[in-house]
Computed example of a mutant assay.
Amino acid sequence: MKTIQNILAILLLTVMYSCKADTSKPIATIAPVAIEKPDNLSKHYIKVALLLDTSNSMDGLIDQAKAQLWEIVNELSYAKSKNTRPNIQIALYEYGNDRLSSRDNYIRKVLAFTEDLDEVSKELFSLTTNGGSEYCGAVVQTSLNKLDWGNNADDLKLIFIAGNEPFNQGPVNYKDATTNAKEKDVVVNTIFCGNYEQGIASNWQDGARLAYGDYMAINHNQETVHIASPYDDVIIQLNIKLNTTYVPYGHFGKEKIAVQAEQDENAASYSKANAVSRTVTKGSRLYKNSSWDLVDAEEEEGFSYDKLKQQELPEALQRKSKTELKKYIAEQRTERNRIQKEIKELNEKRRLYISKHQSETANGLESVMVKAIKKQAKKKNYTWN
Rank of each mutant, 00 (worst) to 15 (best):
I4D: 15
N6L: 11
L8Q: 12
T14G: 05
M16G: 14
M16Q: 05
I27F: 15
A28Q: 11
P32G: 01
A34G: 02
N40H: 07
N40D: 14
S42F: 09
T54Y: 01
D59R: 12
D63S: 04
Q68F: 12
E71H: 10
I72C: 06
V73Q: 07
K82C: 14
R85P: 12
P86C: 07
N87F: 04
Q89N: 14
Y93V: 06
D98W: 06
D98C: 02
L100Q: 14
N105G: 08
I107D: 06
R108L: 07
T114L: 01
V120D: 05
V120Y: 01
L124F: 04
S126Y: 00
G131W: 07
G132D: 00
V139S: 00
V140L: 01
Q141N: 06
L144V: 04
K146W: 14
N152S: 11
D155R: 13
D155Q: 13
L156F: 07
P166C: 04
G170N: 09
N173S: 10
K175C: 14
A177Y: 09
T179V: 03
N180C: 07
V188C: 05
E197W: 03
R209M: 03
H220Y: 06
N221W: 07
V225S: 03
I227F: 03
I227Q: 11
A228Q: 12
P230C: 10
Y231C: 00
Y231Q: 02
D232F: 02
D233K: 15
V234N: 11
K241T: 09
N243C: 08
T244S: 07
T245G: 07
G250M: 10
F252R: 11
K254P: 00
K256G: 06
A258P: 02
V259T: 15
V259P: 08
D264Y: 05
A267E: 14
A268F: 13
K272H: 04
V276W: 00
D293N: 06
A297G: 04
E301D: 09
D306Y: 15
L308Y: 15
Q310A: 13
E312D: 13
L313M: 15
E315F: 11
A316C: 08
S321K: 03
T323N: 02
E324N: 09
L325H: 05
L325T: 00
K327V: 09
I339M: 01
K341V: 05
K349P: 02
S355L: 11
K356V: 06
S359Y: 02
A362Q: 15
N363R: 13
L365F: 14
A377K: 10
K380A: 10
N381G: 12
N385S: 07
N385R: 09
